[in-house]
């Protein structure tokens, strides 16, 4: 079974029952990019739902259509999400996204990868 994908938008892989999703720097993060991202993730998962660790350190901000798409279609086959943000950047952008588009699954923001993985263990 293929459990690793690398595209222009992200690196996605499965490890120990958690799906790791590392965003690349996407210069023009629009609806087309959002659709491709969701398609790639779901095709890797086949039909199984996973807890997801989403590393946002490199991400550029998605435009409004991309944000709406990620908030809805982007939550398919997800048990829970742990977002990782870089220590040197305030996480207001992620707060904005979560406040305006309330997530449909348990969601938490972390600065440390280990803590994020620990949180996701409960949803495996």
């Amino acid at each position: 079974m293929i459990n690793y994908i690398r595209t222009d938008y992200a690196e996605i892989y499965l490890e120990n029952g958690i799906l790791f999703f590392n965003y690349s720097n996407i210069p023009n993060f629009d609806l087309k990019a959002a659709k491709k991202i969701v398609d790639d993730r779901i095709s890797l998962q086949k039909e199984k739902a996973y807890p997801i660790l989403c590393d946002m350190s490199a991400i550029n901000y998605p435009d409004i259509e991309a944000r709406k798409y990620l908030a809805f279609e982007g939550s398919l086959l997800i048990k829970a999400v742990a977002y990782i943000v870089a220590m040197d950047i305030p996480n207001h952008l992620l707060d904005f996204f979560i406040e305006v588009n309330p997530p449909r699954v348990p969601t938490k923001i972390f600065y440390q990868r280990e803590k994020a993985i620990e949180y996701l263990q409960h949803y495996k």
């Binding site: 969701v38 398609d39 779901i42 095709s43 998962q45 086949k46 039909e47 809805f72 279609e73 398919l76 086959l77």
Partner: peptide
Amino acid sequence: KRLEQSLVLIKNTPM
């Protein structure tokens, strides 16, 4: 909304 989700699942999963 359910039909939109079904489209994504049909496209990307063997379900």
